[in-house]
Design a protein around this nucleic acid. Structure first.
Lengths: 215, 215
DNA sequence: CGAAGAATTGAGGTTAATCAACGAGGGTGG
DNA sequence: CCACCCTCGTTGATTAACCTCAATTCTTCG
């Protein structure tokens, strides 16, 4: 990918240049994901905002870095310049005109980058109970064979030990255990101890998505 | 344990299949980065180990996900199966036989994914002072115009406010300020207050890379 | 000069880590 | 079979790290 080139009859569609002053929002949450940006000069930071105002900046990018990638129709994070910045803008639609294997490969990487962004928000800004709740929710939402639904309940298989979950969520195994116990005590989930992987029944999805937690 | 399909005249080079039992290390830190893996069935976790044993798992991957990407010659993280897993293995060298633009695009994404992995380790497992130290070090190492070197000192420009650094490192601005003060008090760095972006002189790089912090 | 924004520092509170004990299951070997 | 050990999970008591709230300083800018 090189700089300042209009390589086809779309003229300014590909590799269009843009200059951005410092502290300027380049992409906002919810913007349609039409373009991908490459930094030529300057620095850009990517962040997300939780509903209650907590913010996590998860990438600091310099020359050569790319941002604006997402597998979705809209951006789910904010891109803001730190310094005077020069960008090259690439139409997203153009990215799809590439061999299919490569294309799907890029698609996978994009999705995984977005997941890493969400995980940075979790690690940087969420409480222990919020982390465990998010973990459970992701198990449900993941198109896993792990999730199973009956009329009233959702069941998920938790394929990790407390220690592994702790290392994933940036906690200790004791704190993870306490968070599970609290969710059980609150009636949000239920589970029994037994040998194999843990099987959790989710009684109310709402509290798991909520932001605040009380006793 | 292997070899379902050979899809072209490269023989078993592309899309070779592999079956992995649960709790098996697929990639270890330091392994030569010859292949890229795609999950067909099962779940895989990616993690890093700090020298003192702290571990951070930063990705949980399911069917369709890719792992083993790195811009380097060797893997810098561990991939381990959680469940019975079926993988497709792609030769890394083959990934380079694609149009250059796409190729460099993938390269950028790979590098950024690795940075996100490191940042997850920071957010999940490092102390406040370690986070700030790592932040400063990355400013130095980043091929930035921000870093400048004289005979004895290294200078870096810190282009962010305490609040932004805090949101990046998963801390509060007060904790960031205290960490800078501590590093200054310890004689590791020095800086003065003034209007523009902060300019930091680094006197000893060693302590910034160290893991443990006293007084 | 007064106001506003950024940074620093202190005091006190809260969350999660640490240290520790205990219980449940699953092997293994006697 | 039982005794033993080991891993895993739970829970309690205490500690430590970080957050919150607050006061102060420095700088710039109107």
């Amino acid at each position: 990918m090189e700089l300042y080139r209009s390589s086809n009859n779309h003229g300014d569609v590909i590799g269009r240049a843009m200059d951005v002053p410092p502290r300027t929002v380049i992409i906002d949450e919810g913007d349609p994901a039409r373009s991908v940006y490459k930094i030529q000069v300057g620095q850009v930071m990517l962040s997300k905002l939780l509903p209650d105002g907590r913010r996590q900046i998860f990438e600091l990018l310099g020359p050569g870095s790319i941002f604006g990638v997402t597998p979705n129709q809209r951006h789910d994070s904010v891109a803001e310049s730190l310094t005077d910045t020069k960008l090259s803008i690439f139409e997203r639609s153009w990215l799809n005109h590439v061999p299919s294997i490569e294309n799907s490969f890029v698609h996978c990487l994009e999705a995984q980058i977005c997941a890493l962004h969400d995980h940075a928000v979790l690690l940087g800004r969420k409480t222990a109970t919020e982390r465990v709740s998010t973990y459970i929710l992701n198990l449900v939402n993941g198109h896993d064979q792990n999730s199973e639904q009956t009329q009233s309940h959702v069941f998920v298989i938790v394929p990790m030990t407390r220690s592994e979950i702790a290392d994933y969520l940036g906690l200790t195994l004791e704190t993870v255990s306490r968070a599970f116990s609290r969710l059980k005590r609150l009636g949000v989930i239920s589970y029994e101890r037994h040998d194999g992987p843990m099987r959790v029944a989710i009684h109310r999805l709402g509290p798991l998505t909520g932001t605040y937690w009380t006793a």
